[in-house]
Amino acid sequence: MRPQSAGNWLALPVVAALGALCLAPLAILFAYSFFSVDFVTISHDPSLKNYARILQSETYRGLIARAFGSGLLVAAITAVIGYPVAWFLAKRAGAAKTMLLTLLLVPLYSGDLLRIFAWRVLLGAEGAINRSLIWLGAIDAPLQGLLFSPLATHIALTYNYLPFMVIGLWLAFESLDDAWLEAAADLGAPGRDRFRRVTLPLTAPGLIAGGLMVFVMVVGDYLTPQLLGGASGVTVISAINDLFGTAFDWPLGSAIAWTMLAILMLCFGAGATLIRRSSLVAEGA
């Protein structure tokens, strides 16, 4: 047996496990999305009814659009915050770099719920922010909009997923040669042009990679809006959850899940193409 084919055989268990545990459930879900519910049983006559329902329903379309809107918004905010942080880590942190990177990841070691409840403590009517503002005399009554609002959800989501954006950008900054920025300055480019014409295009792969990660995770986040969003906590993910649970409409739930999946795959494809194109540049194929 040639070593190469031995390697292929050794990879078989992994491929089989991935197929059975990851791809098969998705395939089953995909099949379900073409079925329909007949009172309490599931009818196995295939149709596109579920997808038609999603298209026609303003509620579902709205929920899907809101999920992707949130993903884009949080990705954008984390990019704006992440750029200076990543630049500092790569170019200025020096010996403290390892420690700062570890600190950046520390929140990820604690549980989701823990972080969410921490934000409740901060944002609640009796929370740290309201108390301080009242004590300072800036307000008379607690600000109610802080907690259980889209604001609270997006603050927590940004906080949760910022490390992923920073890591992506940090890697990009590590491979950004300072000589390029010096060359740009040498050729007459002021600071903002150096960012626009050199830093931004050369860190774009990191921005896209980090952005995709944040985007996907925000779109799929269930707990944060549920526990911090109040009335706005109804998301497309919670809708899918309801359809599989109390509403017992697995086919519609599957169809929504697959619609989300298809859109996410499109986003990934677009991102991957962009990264490949910019790394072609970097490696000069």
Binding site: D177, A184, L202
Partner: peptide, 9 residues
């Protein structure tokens, strides 16, 4: 520059 520092993009 010593490394030429040509813009790769």
């Amino acid at each position: 520059f010593q490394s030429y520092a040509l813009f790769p993009h």
